[in-house]
Design a protein around this nucleic acid. Structure first.
Length: 433
RNA sequence: GUGGGCGUAGCUCAGGGGUAGAGCACUGGAUUGUGGCUCCAGCGGUCGUGGGUUCAAAUCCCAUCGUCCACCCCA
């Protein structure tokens, strides 16, 4: 029988990697909770219509990247390509916007049918946050400040920079869209093929084209920031003033448009050049019209999503240690029940003890080899001699202090004494190899 | 969706028409109760898959799948 492979662009997270995922997930969850966000868990599959409505027909995500398939009853379903649309759906379905203020976060896999490359997979993971019912500039600023705090806590703030822009309100964008199309239409033959197509479907996206010829055309094009209405302009000025007051560095990128149609007003992106071509680690913005588009009462919203694989790659590049190395590894001769009994008594005595019992057996040599490989700090030896004497031998696997024996009933206390300098966080902070 | 690189042992890779290799890892021994260092021995592969050319294919050709990188786009 031939063995099968995972689907292209969808990767296993093996036990050797899972420790770092847990490390990161735990830190994010703690921080988001501390800012008053509650977790929401929603399905991975939604009706396709949810995304076409929310993200927009003219976007790449909807046009060519969705994993859509017919359900048995013929209805089109879809592996979610992003989280916000589903959160809005759930929030409306369960009436969570009564009263209107709500802060939620989510974490999980997303799916986009793209060609895989560095920092881009077909199944990838995002952690995202959404705030509903709050339209003040302080909301935008606190959200961005929280992201900045995350980067500091994870030790990657020096690798990221913040770009920010305002897309204005819907009417502003419509006026600007007309002006932009009026400018580009007579010059259409100088646009690259993608931009020509977007002139009809989604003209604003032409703004972040990287094609040099197209870029040179855009130099004299009408500017989005000159078409902002008074309210949107004041909002943006207030947000950036707050960022300045909080000491958060930002740069204004007038070409920052984002690929999803639902954004308005403030949009932002944290990018890095440490990750190859996929520089965006976290991105988001305001979506004040989305709840209404999805059939709810008009409610402002804002949020961001961060790419877990990308963020993890950044954290790893700093040399962060994630391993939970065992405290002890129990080696024994033939003492079956005695061995398991000893291990269980130790776990009763000290529930957080990271203890591995050798279940494969074999020679002491083989058992000690596995003890060493496990990374454990000490080996506990329960052999015939120890059994007869009611003792257990402790052997230091990482230093050269001589091994010693203690009465079995004092072993737990002795281990706690030895690892007393280990705070509960010792595993997370790592130990020298 | 487009372009290019790469698929040989668990891992990293060499070999480019004529008997399938190395290092690391793994197992055992030197060391019958002690890991790491050293030495010795051993296990391990339908050379990604399918087809073609040839007396002969890991090697050349075609297709396909996967992977990596870039374009595009995005987290």
């Amino acid at each position: 029988m031939k063995t099968l492979q995972a689907v292209r662009g969808m990767h296993d997270i093996l036990p050797s990697d899972a420790a770092r995922w847990q490390w990161l997930e735990q830190r994010l969850a703690e921080r988001l909770t501390a800012y008053g966000f509650g977790e929401i868990r929603i399905p991975v599959v939604e009706k396709t219509e949810l995304f076409t409505r929310a993200i927009g027909q003219g976007t790449d995500v909807v046009e060519k990247e969705m994993y859509a398939f017919p359900d048995r009853n013929g209805e089109s379903l879809c592996l979610r390509p992003e989280g916000t649309a589903g959160v809005v759906r759930a929030v409306l379905q369960h009436g969570l916007l009564n009263p209107p203020g709500l802060k939620v976060w989510y974490q999980g896999p997303m799916f986009r049918h793209e060609r895989p490359q560095k920092g881009r997979q077909r199944q990838f993971h995002q952690t995202g946050v959404e705030i509903f019912g709050m339209e003040t500039p302080e909301t935008d600023a606190e959200l961005i400040a929280m992201a900045g705090r995350l980067w500091r806590e994870l030790g990657v703030d020096h690798l990221l920079r913040l770009e920010i822009n305002s897309l204005g309100d819907r009417e502003d964008r419509e006026r600007y869209r007309t002006a932009l199309v009026d400018y580009l239409r007579p010059r259409v033959d100088r646009l690259d093929a993608d931009s020509q197509r977007r002139l009809e479907t989604n003209p604003l996206r032409i703004l972040d084209s990287k094609n040099p010829e197209t870029r040179s055309l855009l130099v004299d094009a009408p500017r989005l920031d000159e078409h902002l209405g008074d309210e949107a302009r004041r909002h943006f000025e207030r947000v950036t003033a707050l960022l300045d007051a909080l000491g958060i560095a930002w740069t204004h990128n007038p070409g920052l448009v984002r690929g999803l149609d639902y954004y308005c007003r403030t949009v932002f992106e944290w990018t890095t050049d440490a990750l190859g071509a996929q520089g965006t680690v976290c991105a988001g913005g305001r979506y004040d019209d989305l709840v209404e588009i999805q059939g709810g009462r008009a409610t402002p919203g804002i949020g961001f999503a961060l790419g877990m694989e990308r963020l993890l790659a950044l954290v790893e590049s700093t040399g962060q240690q994630f391993e939970h190395r065992p405290h002890a590894y129990l080696v024994s001769s033939e003492a079956g029940a005695a061995r398991l009994g000893l291990a269980e008594r130790l776990r009763d005595h000290w529930p957080a003890l990271r203890l591995i019992t050798d279940l494969q057996g074999g020679s002491f040599k083989a058992q000690f080899k596995r003890a060493d490989r496990s990374g454990a700090a000490v080996a506990l030896v329960l052999g015939e001699a120890e059994l007869a004497a009611g003792e257990v031998t402790i052997k230091d696997l990482r230093g050269d202090s001589p091994q010693s024996s203690v009465p079995a009933d004092r072993l737990g206390a002795e281990l706690r004494r030895r690892f007393a300098t280990d705070g509960p966080d010792v595993a997370a902070s790592g130990e020298p190899a």
